[in-house]
């Protein structure tokens, strides 16, 4: 159990609420501390998501990327935040920005934890997205065209699924569809050159990097 960060201790939550302390509360799965930090922040749920939840999830993702936390921390943090948003908004917070249409998919794989982790971060960041679930490359391209998706997020656990992104890229290019592709998942971590090989525009080493990646490929605020 981790009870303190260099920037604070869980006993400080009411006196000095901060995103760092929220991060600590989430890592410890301390639902009560989350509520106390929210109350002490004096913010509306929407601003609390923006100023506390998004940076806290980003911090946890960075620590996972550096090997300081586990995927179980990332998952449970996201789940607690999802519960908070469910209570506060009956779902995700309202989409705060006008931006490119975003879709999230997994290619030919039935193990969806990575997609769920990305979903936590997107919802926390107020990004509206289409959830395509598990699809084939051909189905994905068809749906991207039908829905006029401009940024496609693809999560891959297995190498063959990651390699299928090339097929999606080529089909989109042949169809003249302008759509940026952001990829993430174990194969891309283990071989960073895979990102260029499959024609992706950006690769996330952790789910928490999806918001900066969206900002980068969209050229604006996520």
């Amino acid at each position: 159990m981790i009870v303190s960060y260099p920037t604070g201790h869980l006993s400080d939550v009411s006196a000095r609420p901060s995103a760092d302390l929220l991060e600590l509360a989430l890592v410890n799965m301390d639902r009560l501390a989350l509520q106390r930090i929210y109350s002490a922040s004096g913010l509306t749920p929407l601003f609390f998501c923006e100023q506390f939840i998004t940076p806290a999830l980003a911090g946890i993702g960075e620590k996972w990327d550096r090997g300081e936390l586990s995927l179980s921390h990332v998952y449970m943090s996201g789940r607690l935040c999802e519960d908070f948003m469910e209570q506060s908004f009956r779902g995700a917070p309202p989409n705060r920005k006008s931006e490119d249409r975003v879709a999230l998919a997994v290619l030919e794989d039935y193990h969806l934890l990575g997609k769920r982790l990305v979903g936590f971060v997107l919802r926390g960041g107020g990004v509206d997205y289409l959830d395509y679930g598990t699809v084939t490359a051909a189905e994905l391209v068809r749906r991207v065209q039908e829905d006029s998706v401009r940024v496609l997020l693809i999560s891959a656990l297995m190498l063959p699924s990651a390699l299928k992104v090339r097929e999606v890229r080529d089909k989109l290019d042949r169809a003249g569809v302008s759509c940026r592709i952001i990829v993430g998942g174990a194969p891309f971590r283990l071989d960073p050159s895979l990102c260029d090989e499959v024609g992706a525009d950006f690769c996330c080493a952790a789910a928490s990097q999806v918001l900066p990646a969206l900002k980068r490929v969209s050229g604006g605020e996520p």
Partner: peptide
């Protein structure tokens, strides 16, 4: 692996 699950678990 600690990359996957909290070692305490």
């Amino acid at each position: 692996s600690p990359k996957m699950i909290d070692p305490s678990l």
